[in-house]
């Protein structure tokens, strides 16, 4: 159990560093900005209590914010994602619920489930993030295109990470 906590802490640290030093520099033509750090929220265990989940989400967003001059933007988007996750999990839960030994990964629930789960939550996060950043609706479709393209990009990275971290 302690090992699991250390693993989660290391994952937090690694994803934040990766995001700040590498992925924030990826900015193809202003449309594609991957925010892979949401993978941390996606991979938290099912039995994480709700209050801890939302505090961890806030901390994650706050850490990203404080190093990239975007006060509040990532925090707000992460808190929203963390808030929606338990409800969304309930909607897409398998017939016999979630076993405490399982984790939200391909080996336990299959590729299709992971795709559905990751894609929707990443979309929610990116949608919130980009619209908070723009803070107006006058460029609605332009922003929406950015949301969709970046979501697909992040999603691809998430699935690749799944295959790298949890080799079959």
């Amino acid at each position: 159990m302690i090992g699991e906590y250390i693993k989660i802490a290391l994952r937090f640290f690694f994803l934040v560093v990766l995001q700040l030093l590498v992925l924030n520099n990826v900015q193809w033509s202003g449309y594609l900005n991957p925010y892979l750090y949401v993978l941390f929220i996606l991979l938290l265990p099912f039995e994480t209590p709700n209050w801890l989940l939302i505090i961890l989400s806030f901390l994650l967003g706050f850490t990203i914010d404080s190093f990239s001059n975007t006060w509040g933007m990532h925090s707000a988007a992460c808190v929203l994602t963390g808030f929606i996750r338990p409800y969304f999990l309930k909607i897409i839960s398998p017939r016999d619920g979630y076993d405490s030994a399982t984790r939200p990964i391909i080996r336990d629930f299959g590729l299709e489930w992971v795709i559905k789960y990751s894609l929707i939550l990443i979309f929610i996060h990116h949608f919130a993030l980009f619209y908070i950043e723009v803070f107006k609706f006058s460029l609605f479709f332009h922003t929406f295109l950015r949301v969709v393209l970046s979501t697909l990009f992040t999603f691809t990275l998430v699935i690749i990470s799944h295959f790298i971290i949890y080799k079959r």
Partner: peptide, 22 residues
């Protein structure tokens, strides 16, 4: 309602940060 209340509180904190610091 602790989950919902925490959600609202943390979002408000984020928005305050957003408005004050940008």
């Amino acid at each position: 309602y602790h989950f919902l209340l925490m959600f609202i509180a943390l979002e408000v904190i984020s928005i305050i940060m957003l408005v004050q610091n940008n």
